[in-house]
Write a protein that binds this DNA or RNA. Structure first.
Lengths: 198, 198
DNA sequence: CGCCAGGTTGAAGCGCTTCAACGTCTGTGG
DNA sequence: CCACAGACGTTGAAGCGCTTCAACCTGGCG
C-alpha cells in the first residue's frame, strides 16, 4: 500500500502538483482493493462506478461481439484502468474489465471523485488533464486503425508497448489489433522470414 | 456574432452554468474569425494554437498519408473544431483543418485559455467536460473501426450523422470510413439493390 | 462546346477470414 | 512417472471483400 501510494503520487505529480491538503483529501477517498487472475473489476452490463489505479498487475477490457470475446484495451501497473465511457455517462458498460494477472490497486468511486472535483480546483485540473491524456491515446489508436495496415500496427505495438507482447497471450493481442488469431500468427511468420524488409 | 455567442452559450450551458462574471471573462478572450471555402484553419506542420467554435460552416480534418489526402473527421456548426492533440501537446500537427463551407467562428487561443482555466474553476470544469466528451466520441469511433464492417459503419453514419452524407462529397466520406471511394460506391450500390436486408 | 472533378462500374489481385487439422506445452489424474 | 485433455499457436486451403487500375458517365463551369 505504501508502494502503491508512492506510485500514484508520482503519476499525479506529473500532471498537477497538488497542495498537501488537497492531496490528503484526494488520498482520503481511495479504497484499496485486489483481484485474482481472472476476476472481474467490472462486469459487462454494470455501470462503471470506479476509476482504478493499478499498483501491480494487468487488466484487459473486452467485449462480446457476435459471441466472440474481443479485447479492446490493456492496462498495466502504474496506470489508471477503467471503462471511462460508462463511468462518465453513467450508462451500463458494454465492456468488461478482467484481471489477467493478480492486481493490487486503489479505487475512486464516482460520487467521491465528483465531490473532490467540486471542492478542489487542482483536482478538477487533474481530472481535465487525465481526460485529455486518454483522449490523445484514443485518438492515436483511431488513426492507427484508419491508416495503418495490420502489420504496421503489430510492429508499432512491439515498439511502443513491449509489455503487451511480453505478458499477454497472442489471442488477446489479435483482437486488440483488429485481427483473428490465425492472421496475427501468419503476420508474425511472415516477419520472421523477412525480418525488417521495407 | 450575436447569433454565434448565443449558440456558444447554449453549448456551454449544457456542460457548466458559468457564473455571469466567469462567462464574461470567458467571452472576453474570444476572437471572431471567418474562413472561405477551401481555406485552412490549421496547416499541417503548424502547432494548433486555437480551439474554434463553429457558428456556421463545415470543417474537415485531414492528413496526407503516402501522398493521399485522407479525411479523419468532420466538424459542423454548433461544435468545437480543433486539432486537439496538437493543441494539447504543443507539437506540430500532422493534421490539417480545412473549411469545406464558408465558416464563421470564434477562436480561443491556447495561452488565453490556460489563463482562464487558472483563474476560473468553472472554466476548468468545462474544459474537463469537453475533454471527456470528445474522448467518448473518439472511443466510439475506435470501437466502430475495430468491430464493425465498412458497411455497418456506413449505415451508422447515415443514421447518426446524416449531415455528413448530405453535405460532404463522397470521396471524403470514404476515407473517413476507412475505405477507398470506389469501395464506398460499391457498398452503396449493393445496399440500394438490397435495401435493408439483415 | 469541351474540359474536369466526382462518381460508377468492370476485372484482376491480395490479404484477411474461415474452417480444419496438427503440434506443443501444461497441468491433472491414473 | 506416464498418459491424456485442453488451451494455444501454427499451418494449409478455399472464400470473400476491399483494393488497384482502368474505362466510362455525368454534371458543373469556363
Amino acid at each position: 500500500m505504501e508502494q502503491l501510494l508512492t506510485q500514484l503520487r508520482a503519476y499525479s505529480d506529473q500532471l498537477v502538483k497538488l497542495p498537501e491538503h488537497e492531496w490528503t483529501r484526494f488520498a482520503g477517498i481511495m479504497q484499496p482493493a485486489s483481484f485474482n487472475k481472472g476476476q472481474h473489476l467490472l462486469e459487462i452490463g454494470h455501470v462503471c462506478d470506479h476509476v482504478c489505479f493499478l499498483g501491480t498487475g494487468l487488466v484487459r477490457a473486452y467485449r462480446i461481439h457476435d459471441g466472440e470475446d474481443l479485447t479492446e484495451q490493456f492496462f498495466f501497473e502504474g496506470n489508471y484502468a477503467t471503462e471511462y465511457e460508462s463511468f462518465l455517462t453513467r450508462t451500463p458498460s458494454t465492456v468488461g474489465l478482467q484481471a489477467m494477472e493478480p492486481c493490487t490497486l486503489v479505487r475512486f468511486n464516482h460520487a467521491d471523485l465528483q465531490g473532490t472535483y467540486a471542492s478542489s480546483p487542482m483536482a478538477e485540473r487533474m481530472g481535465r488533464l487525465i481526460a485529455e491524456h486518454i483522449f490523445t491515446g484514443s485518438s492515436r489508436r483511431t488513426r492507427s486503425l484508419l491508416f495503418d495496415t495490420p502489420e504496421q500496427r503489430y510492429l508499432a505495438l512491439i515498439k511502443e508497448r513491449p509489455k503487451v507482447m511480453a505478458r499477454v497471450p497472442q489471442k488477446y493481442i489479435a483482437s486488440y489489433l483488429g485481427l483473428k488469431p490465425e492472421s496475427l500468427s501468419r503476420i508474425r511468420a511472415r516477419l520472421t522470414r523477412k525480418p525488417v524488409a521495407a
